[in-house]
Design a protein around this nucleic acid. Structure first.
Ligand code: FES
Ligand code: FES
Lengths: 143, 143
DNA sequence: TTATATTCGGACTCATATGTCCTATTTTTC
DNA sequence: GAAAAATAGGACATATGAGTCCGAATATAA
């Protein structure tokens, strides 16, 4: 469904947002511990998220990653997924046809379309803020 | 979502079913042409489907693959997916937590659960027969 | 019985995803 | 200015998924 890269990326973003909401910058090391991910690999993913400006980083002592309140409120799951895994999740034919189209549909296209639309709605409507609050309120976990 | 192996496996099964409904056994070569898949790789996938008895094979001249009318009617998409990709699609946490559970949910569990249930319903309720008829009626394509 | 057409299955290759390591760069603290 | 603490980024390593090759087994037809 999602690549591991993407899974780590989402969990890391949620944790960074949570810390940012408490006014704190977070180090890679702490992030990797808290989301139970390989540190060096997570570093690569965070670099990517910095480049697309979903999160911010600062080097040096007391450096680390953070997210602006604006970004926390406006960033949706879909942006993270698209940045890391691309558009396949919204576009790709379930049966692997080179194009997914209602005009030349595969054998499950018509049944699958609404399910996929629900999935896309989930991604585009779920904000990082919402997820971070879920963690804060202990309604969800990150590891 | 589905592995390529699984995509090829499903498309091959649909085509074998279609041919079986016309009373014909189908050779690997013809299957690979019709579903636009690499022949040797498809062979491996079909071997697996034979082992789990979703399709049948016979060697030698005029050999090939076929499916009993019983199997065509009773086999669902989910059986093919589970046989090839395993249960991950129904079980795995979207955010990669080691367990997906409502008691210790990840940040999207509650929103994702109904979508996944719809997906599982799609898989368990869609029969090979239904898909083969769709191809026969030219309502869907295989390549 | 021999030639031919087919699947079976093991060993291999290739591509991509996942993950590690090491050095450079930047920033803060002393 | 030097030491320390952090991210950046390239090169490398490993695992898995995707795909190929080839000989063995089997069935049919002449
Ligand atoms: S054509 Fe296959 S999902 Fe749309
Ligand atoms: S816990 Fe993540 S999807 Fe259920």
């Amino acid at each position: 469904m999602l690549s591991k890269t993407c899974e780590y990326g989402i969990r890391a973003t949620i944790f960074i947002a949570l810390q940012s909401m408490l006014g704190m910058r977070t180090s890679l090391k702490y992030i990797a511990e808290e989301i139970d991910s390989p540190e060096a690999f997570t570093a690569k993913i965070l670099q990517k998220l910095v480049r697309v400006k979903i999160i911010e980083s600062s080097k040096g002592m007391n450096g680390g990653f953070n997210m602006s309140m604006d970004r926390i409120k406006s960033t949706t799951l879909s942006e993270i997924v698209y940045a890391i895994d691309g558009l396949d999740i919204s576009n790709r034919c379930v049966l692997g046809l080179s194009q997914c189209s209602s005009i030349n549909p595969c054998s499950v296209h018509h049944k699958f379309k609404p399910v996929r639309e629900d999935l896309i709605a989930l991604l585009t409507k779920t904000t990082v803020e919402e997820m971070a609050i879920g963690i804060k309120e202990k309604l969800a976990i990150l590891r």
